[in-house]
């Protein structure tokens, strides 16, 4: 299963404080372990929300809101995408991560939707529609 592991923002990350060389090194080592275990697909860090924007929707209306955003703990400062066997494995790997922030911090693990999750959403009508389209394409 594929999961996104989000590094939650803190006051420090929102202030744009760069990680120490020690943390950089520890994080590099952890990333190497993830790669060698074959579970790391990708990952990146995000700039503070002061450099971000939001587009708010309300019916037909669109409002652009400039960062920074107030609710620091709900913001994301970075992420990985891992391929793991189950959530328990993701949790164990997350526990091995060096604390990504100088102060207390949090990782949040969220599984991706997979094809099987849509089995109930795909109605027989939708399936039939797709099948018709496919036959048409095949006969073209």
């Amino acid at each position: 299963m594929r999961v996104m592991v989000m590094v939650k923002a803190t006051k420090d990350s929102e202030a744009g404080i760069m990680p120490s060389p020690e943390l950089f090194e520890a994080m590099g080592k952890f990333n190497e372990e993830l790669v060698n275990a074959g579970i790391m697909l990708t990952g990146d860090g995000l700039k503070p929300s002061s450099q971000g924007k939001r587009v708010a929707f309300d019916g037909p209306n669109r409002t652009v809101i400039d960062g920074p955003f107030a609710e620091t703990r709900e913001l994301v400062a970075g992420f990985w995408i891992w391929e793991v066997k189950d959530m328990a494995e993701a949790v164990e790997w997350a526990k091995r991560c060096p604390n990504p922030m100088p102060g207390p911090s949090e990782l949040e693990i969220r599984p991706f939707y997979e094809m099987a999750d849509f089995a109930d959403v795909i109605t027989p009508e939708l399936a039939e529609q797709e099948e018709r389209l496919r036959v048409k394409l095949a006969d073209r």
């Binding site: 190497e32 790669v35 060698n36 275990a37 074959g38 579970i39 790391m40 391929e83």
Partner: peptide, 13 residues
């Protein structure tokens, strides 16, 4: 997925 994982491990090593 298992084979991809093995391939990724091998690529890492």
């Amino acid at each position: 997925a298992e084979a991809q994982r093995l391939g990724r491990i091998l690529a890492g090593l």
